[in-house]
Design a protein around this nucleic acid. Sequence first.
DNA 1: GATCTTCCGGAGGGTAACCTCCGGAAAGAC
DNA 2: GTCTTTCCGGAGGTTACCCTCCGGAAGATC
Lengths: 222, 222
Amino acid sequence: MNQQRGPRRRQRRDAQLNRAALVEAARDVFAERGLDAPLEQIARQAGVGIGTLYRHFPTRTDLYDELLTASMTEHLQLVEQALAMDDPWDGFCHYLVETCACEARDRGHNDMMSMRFPRAKVAEATRRRVFAAVNRLIERAQQSGQLRADVTPEDLAFVRWANSRVLAATGPVVPDVWRRHLALMLDGFRAEAAHPLPVPPLTPRQTYRAMLTLGRRVTGAG
Amino acid sequence: MNQQRGPRRRQRRDAQLNRAALVEAARDVFAERGLDAPLEQIARQAGVGIGTLYRHFPTRTDLYDELLTASMTEHLQLVEQALAMDDPWDGFCHYLVETCACEARDRGHNDMMSMRFPRAKVAEATRRRVFAAVNRLIERAQQSGQLRADVTPEDLAFVRWANSRVLAATGPVVPDVWRRHLALMLDGFRAEAAHPLPVPPLTPRQTYRAMLTLGRRVTGAG
DNA sequence: GATCTTCCGGAGGGTAACCTCCGGAAAGAC
DNA sequence: GTCTTTCCGGAGGTTACCCTCCGGAAGATC
């Protein structure tokens, strides 16, 4: 991903190995402790000095970007899998349930998609496909009369944010109870339950900024 | 609250004033930055040395406890206000909306109720009244056939947790959009929308532990 | 296997919070 | 006004993370 092309020669073998070890360690550590995990732990787990980490990834962000592509691809698979389902509502639910399940088992992936998704110039193509697929997923569920007509793709961000907090609270205690919260939310998305919403949806731009806000202080309470 | 009785004499006047200033500063700072705000900022804002803060409140927790009573009382008023409403569903909604509004304007209060509520031996009496009132609020909304029958008081914790995360993301960007998320959730609580929930509710004890978990690392991402 | 280039490791300095400790100032008692 | 008791302030030690820097080790090349 960072391999210089053109005039510059290939990396030395040991450098390549270290880089790979770092990426793998980052995946593990982020999965366990979230994106604000100490970089030193990643270096240690990769069996590498902290200096080496910083040489390969001058910024924490560079490390995120390295992993973002993978998270994004995984996410795309979920949407497409959901789109392949016959019943539009089932597809819609499947997408959200699997997304949340994914977050439940990998905090890094969670933070990644709820805070860094917008930054994904890295994986621009994939990102567009995700957008398109989610739009289709929503549209067809609305057209079938099962999903309420007044929700937009941006409203799904609520689900991710909410789930992430519920997970933080209950994950260590009752690993599966997020499913209950999600089921309640999903019932709120049904057309049969729809009552007028008091406030217009977030615009894409606002959602973008909200994600960046979250990313600023990951660990923020409140 | 900390005034020693019995053999010990009353505090010196300046000590009393400092204590009051600290409490007030704590309220302000926590409201703005959440319960994990730096204590040094509180001391500064109170116009007092950090040593003085620690003498009066040896632990961060002691400071929380000082404020918890007030938050709790405020909360109790909300529930009772909601119970006074004629329509059970309106009362139920009113309670949650006002609770969330309260959190929107005071992050400290928010953290307090979603993380420290269980610790409230301090305000045991008030706490019991809150519990009782919330139970009644739920029961009567269920009996009127408006609130789904399969929710328990513990499910309301989901709402608080979710709201707190939505606020963290969107608060600085679109101050009012939490109302949209809440409205969606509320529609999910309607009897008309009810579909079977996949997982049993949290027990009170699990809810307790979940709150402590949140309190452990306030700022936790994920 | 000599030479040149790249890369590594971790010591070390910086920052931001934590909390303790004690010399001296202020309040209250007489 | 003096003396005793209580209280204050903030310097400074501690921790946990950040990131930089450079002597020397290890690959690559011939």
